[in-house]
């Protein structure tokens, strides 16, 4: 058999599957988002960008979903990056039990969002929830909060859940980054009389650009796409307070039968993820050459 035929055969599954399930579908969504498609019956006329114009100018819930998505992503990343770095440094200090702590920090990553959602709804329940009950139990009843059931705290609650779920991943990447710092650099710093604290501050942390970059982009991806965790905790509420693009897409399409709008929101998400990911993958591939 010719070499090129064999090569084609080896690439066939990946190319066909990704071609259909990613690119054909994304193209289909883009096309559907430019049709009139309301109700269960199927397509109407071609309307061009009208659905997008409607979303961006007319639909304040869509805009709310977009800003909420950005706020949530921003807050989540601002907390997770330093926390992940802190965790990694604490593990790196090499105290006894470091393996156990590493497992503990990583454990939330193993939980499906469905299970995380279940747990956190229970944790945050205003009357019978773990957090408020503990607060009352230690005499801090004044600090109890309505958490996910109030529109001013629902996003905060989601940020806490996201941080819980994903900071282990940041820890992991930072830990790998810290471990790869060359010992000569540290020894040199030590010769200069640097304390442990100064060694981290002056040598280790400045070398964490690539891990930071990696964590930042992967977390952004997750923040954009996570659906189940939000859908099963706040459902986007109360009011519109925690509506995200991912939940609004589902709501518009499957609760309200406005399928073209749903496809349009889906395509907006596609563009957003492409904007995040293409520079990232390009840079990562570039660095490895």
């Amino acid at each position: 058999m010719k070499k090129s035929v064999q090569i084609a055969f080896f690439l066939l599954p990946a190319v066909v599957l990704v071609g259909i399930f990613v690119y054909y579908f994304a193209g289909w969504s883009a096309w559907a988002s430019m049709m009139k498609w309301e109700g269960l019956s199927g397509f109407g006329d071609f309307v061009g960008l009208q659905n997008y114009i409607h979303l961006f100018t007319d639909d304040f819930v869509f805009r709310k979903g977009l800003t909420n998505t950005l706020i949530l992503s921003g807050a989540f990343i601002l907390v997770t990056l330093p926390l992940g770095l802190l965790n990694a440094i604490l593990i790196d200090l090499g105290l006894k039990g470091k393996k156990a702590f590493r497992l503990i920090f990583l454990l939330p990553l193993s939980f499906s969002f469905v299970v995380s959602a279940t747990m956190w709804v229970w944790m945050f329940a205003p009357k019978t929830g773990t957090i408020n009950t503990i607060l009352r139990g230690i005499g801090l009843g004044a600090l109890t909060q309505p958490w996910l059931t109030s529109s001013s705290q629902s996003l905060l609650g989601l940020v806490i859940i996201y941080v819980w779920q994903f900071s282990g991943f940041a820890t992991l990447v930072y830990f790998a980054g810290i471990s790869s710092v060359r010992t000569e650099l540290l020894e040199a710093a030590e010769v200069d009389g640097a304390t442990t604290f100064q060694k981290y501050l002056r040598v280790v942390i400045p070398l964490q650009k690539i891990p930071t970059f990696t964590v930042l982009f992967l977390l952004l991806m997750y923040a954009l796409r996570v659906f189940d965790l939000v859908w099963l905790t706040t459902g986007g509420g109360p009011g519109y307070s925690s509506e995200l693009l991912a939940t609004y897409m589902w709501r518009v399409a499957f609760n309200r039968n406005q399928f073209a709008d749903g496809a349009a929101i889906g395509f907006v998400m596609f563009v957003l993820s492409a904007l995040i990911v293409i520079p990232f993958v390009a840079k990562m591939r570039g660095d490895s050459r």
Partner: peptide, 18 residues
């Protein structure tokens, strides 16, 4: 229409808060 409950459930959830 079917969408009423979802659309206005959200609207009133927002109104009850504020």
């Amino acid at each position: 229409p079917e969408a009423w409950l979802d659309v206005f459930g959200r609207m009133f959830s927002s109104f009850f808060e504020n």
